[in-house]
Design a protein around this nucleic acid. Structure first.
Lengths: 102, 102
DNA sequence: TTATAATATGAATATATGTTCATATGTGTA
DNA sequence: TACACATATGAACATATATTCATATTATAA
């Protein structure tokens, strides 16, 4: 790279990175992930705390789950979601701090 | 926060953070920023290197400029763009590395 | 079994977004 | 001045996305 050659990003990396950032590019998903910083929560709990439609929360959680940003466990009728990507959560935390202190 | 109280994100922070990540949530903008990691480039140079429409590049640069992720300087007829947010560029670099090595 | 609670799913819809096209603006040069 | 070059802009369009509604699935309890 010191010779001025440009190393293009491969398609796969580009897709994965953009998808991940896309997940963080929506206020609702940020709020959900922010809730999951410190705790595991059920779908209805998240919906209640954020005043969101249950279906909406469920859709967003599926999105986040597909990207492996969250995971879930079932306990009876209830499904608890929690964070599943330290790196992304760290970046989100940093960015929120950065935005807050400015 | 240790008492279980949830500190909601304020609207302004939420908007700023989501907007910033939205900027990183598009392959074209990632490619542009990736180009600007190490060098300052003109609009036509970026368009050429990435095989993109000049107008498209210009639109995306405006988007990035509005968020102060890039800055520009004019030299005659040419306008050179360069990065303008170390924090965001660092996050992007980290995420690309993370995605590449996995 | 039936009823109820929690969650997931798919269709519908309105809005947002990325890209292209045509053209305007700005700058240097003959 | 007139022309060419570099970039910006706005309209148009196709596609993507977020949200809601209605309903399906899954699990527990009566």
């Amino acid at each position: 790279m010191t010779d001025g050659t440009y190393e293009a990003l491969d398609e796969e990396t580009l897709f994965l990175v953009s998808q991940t950032f896309k997940a963080l590019g929506d206020p609702t998903r940020i709020r959900i992930l922010h809730l999951l910083f410190e705790q595991e929560l059920s779908v209805s709990n998240i919906a209640e705390k954020l005043d969101l439609n249950q279906s909406n929360v469920s859709h967003q959680l599926r999105f986040l789950k597909n990207l492996r940003l969250v995971k879930y466990r079932r306990d009876g009728k209830t499904i608890y979601y929690s964070q599943d990507d330290e790196h992304v959560m760290k970046i989100l935390q940093q960015s929120i701090d950065h935005a807050t202190h400015h």
